[in-house]
């Protein structure tokens, strides 16, 4: 099982680097322009369209929360959809799963190895992304008074991991119960965007306390809580427990 876990990680090292540095690039584009945009952003404070989509652009902190802390987890979520559906349903479509299933491992061991490996891959991507974005912010802070610390940005970005794990588990579950990868990826994508837009409408009119963002992680928490409100397992509020529950439901189905 450990060897399968190692293989799963080794086979994704290009994805780790590609997505990790790709998401740094996203931050490299949007973080440096923030100080220059501050005056213009302030004038947009009352614009209702931004409230409608849940953005708070009237401050640098709000800008960071709305542009970096929302979209990087979404982009990571897209990777989670691709990786989790390809890991099980994709291998089944390609026929390679038959070789793995014929090995002396139980279904549970195979799924656990793959799920943990993908979680570790998501962790590596987020460590690279969060470190890179924190570094960019640190560089920008040298000449600009920004009331956000690089460590605060790092921890806020890292806190999107439970969300990523949740998506990985749901991707596995769909990959296990649906007939092919294309269908599971489609269902997963629809689910992903539905909950995102529903979440935005739920927050309509709500003013986020941007000064608290890096301490309370309110933005991501509301995002995550809403995600699980739309999931089938309402009674579990803690994301990791929900993820595990979905994962083991899939496991039961397979066995």
């Amino acid at each position: 099982m450990f060897n399968l876990f190692i293989h799963e990680i080794r086979s994704r090292w290009i994805a780790i680097l590609g997505w990790g540095f790709g998401l740094i690039l996203y931050g490299a584009i949007y973080i440096p322009i923030a100080p220059g945009l501050f005056k213009q952003l302030k004038s947009l404070k009352g614009l209702s369209i931004y409230h409608l989509v849940g953005m708070q652009l009237g401050s640098i902190e709000g800008y960071m929360a709305s542009i970096i802390l929302v979209y990087i987890p979404i982009l990571l979520g897209i990777y989670c959809i691709i990786a989790s559906t390809s890991s099980l349903a994709g291998e089944e479509d390609n026929g390679t799963l038959e070789l793995i299933v014929a090995m002396p491992l139980s279904r549970g061991q195979i799924l656990t190895a793959k799920a943990i490996a993908l979680s570790v891959v998501a962790l590596f991507i987020m460590i690279i992304t969060s470190s890179g974005n924190a570094f960019i912010l640190w560089v920008i802070k040298i000449n600009n008074p920004i009331n956000v610390t690089p460590f605060g940005l790092f921890t806020a970005l890292m806190s999107s991991l439970p969300l990523a794990l949740g998506f990985i588990m749901i991707g596995f579950f769909l990959g296990a119960i649906l007939p092919n990868r294309r269908l599971s990826a489609t269902v997963m994508t629809i689910f992903f965007y539905s909950q995102f837009f529903c979440e935005k409408y739920c927050r309509y009119g709500k003013i986020i306390g941007t000064n608290k963002i890096f301490f309370s992680l309110q933005l991501l928490q509301s995002y995550q809580n809403n995600f699980y409100r739309w999931s089938t397992i309402i009674r579990y509020h803690y994301p990791i427990r929900s993820s595990s529950c979905i994962f083991y439901s899939g496991l039961d189905l397979l066995q």
């Binding site: 390609n94 026929g95 390679t96 038959e98 070789l99 014929a102 002396p104 491992l105 139980s106 061991q109």
Partner: peptide, 19 residues
């Protein structure tokens, strides 16, 4: 006892798919 049996079996599928 699938896993215990597969410890003593090797298999070549008819439609072989490799990485």
């Amino acid at each position: 006892d699938g896993a215990a049996i597969r410890e003593r079996i090797s298999y070549l599928p008819g439609e072989l798919s490799l990485y």
